[in-house]
Nucleic acid binder design. Structure first.
Lengths: 119, 119
DNA sequence: CACCCCATTCGATGAATGTCGAACATCGCT
DNA sequence: AGCGATGTTCGACATTCATCGAATGGGGTG
């Protein structure tokens, strides 16, 4: 069969200057994706299957794709896992204060605590 | 018939504490609505028909409803016009910095200028 | 009153979206 | 090689959504 160590399709990540604000807002305007982002906010790096969300694996994969292609997270393939991290610095550079303010607001006045899913 | 100022259904506006962050983000994640909000950001009060957007009146009405019911704007019936304004202070109270950061980011590094529609 | 203006409401419609199950791919381990 | 764990891709399906045209309503003015 074809060349074996082709990392599947290289994951698309928008360049910092290509990141669209409305795409970011749209990506964050979903409960499941917000839970993912809040979890990454509290913990820098996590594999896909380790988030406190209750959806099918295929659905989860879809949400990660939306977050990645909007520029909110970065994904890299670590072995058979996939590690996710927020693109905090790049977003801060491009849209100063936006991610901070949104995540602070999502955390609520109680401050950053354990992420609870609110479906 | 004392007062002739009975305007049919009273427009629904969520209380400050009822405003949902994801609803706000969803409301802002649309080009037409973002243009409306940016225009209101630059000018405090405006009638529905005076925004630099190119959609049918019925579509415009729909967008104003989304913005109002999400808590982003307040609408009040002034005669046969309808005046719109941002709920800046209330949003600042509930989600500190969110609206400011988003609108600053939407304005771009060039600073607040004339709102240009980007469809 | 008749007319015009502004905005809303009501379908309808096509596109986008969130969800799932099944099948596939890749890696690590036995 | 075989197997299990982890994610992705591929339809499929139902819902949401942005958009429009036509009809409606309320207010002011001639």
């Amino acid at each position: 069969m074809p060349r074996s160590h082709q990392r599947r399709a290289p994951l698309y990540h928008p360049e910092p200057e290509e990141i669209d604000l409305l795409d970011v807002l749209h990506a964050l305007a979903d409960p499941t994706r917000m839970t993912i982002v809040r979890t990454l906010w509290a913990e820098p790096e996590r594999a896909c299957g380790t988030f406190p969300v209750d959806v099918a694996p295929s659905t989860l994969s879809h949400h990660f794709k939306v977050l990645r292609e909007s520029g909110v997270i970065r994904q890299r393939g670590e072995a058979n896992r996939r590690l996710n991290e927020l693109r905090r610095e790049e977003l801060q550079q491009r849209f100063p204060g936006v991610l901070d303010a949104i995540l602070a607001a999502a955390a609520g006045p109680a401050g950053p605590g354990p992420v609870a899913q609110e479906d």
